[in-house]
Design a protein around this nucleic acid. Sequence first.
DNA 1: GAGGAGATCGTCT
DNA 2: GACGATCTCCTCT
Length: 214
Amino acid sequence: MRLRKLQPVPRRFYDRDPKVVAPQLLGKILVRRQGRKLLAGRIVEVEAYLGEDDPASHAFRGATDRNRVMFGPPGFAYVYFTYGMHYCANVTCLGEGTAGAILIRALEPSAGIEEMALNRDLNLSLETEHVRVLRALTSGPARLCEALDITRTRDDGKDLTSLKSDLWIASDRSHPGEIACSPRVGITQAADWPLRFYVFGNPFVSGPKVRRSP
DNA sequence: GAGGAGATCGTCT
DNA sequence: GACGATCTCCTCT
């Protein structure tokens, strides 16, 4: 995969309401530079979190040490640790002082697949298991973080709009496909808000495939 | 294929 | 002290 094809999405793209940005993020490429290798995947599933107006958002009760990045400028990584063992990655939206973020829930791997499998401690070489393992690489917010070796200590607050970062989101001209939306996964507050967006029919999407128009 | 339980610890009350 | 924007493994159908 060539670097010149992986130009970052500009910061102004993220300086809008997360529920507007979220569906437009589908089809873009999340890129990790790992040593001399590029690990990349097409974003096929996201969830919008609306900040202080959203009971399900980490920002609902105001700024803390953990969620500080959400209140900063748009286009930065908000990475948090959850369930005692997993990391999840968001990109911040809206300007300084206004919280908003989009959780990246699933990728379709496109480059550095062997490195991702190593990071996940999965074996892609067994032919009978290949499809199952490939689908398990990045279909889930914690899985994709493990595959791209995204952690809070290394990546929280990282600029996702710069090639100087070793983690960024690149634009892609190809059409993502048909977009569907549904309630968000795994939350108890505002559990019926339709803020999960995904590429309909894509096999790398995690969780329930409920059909609903965006 | 679906559903349930356990793992495990940072964060906030 | 309770809970969580999850994942994996196991059991049951």
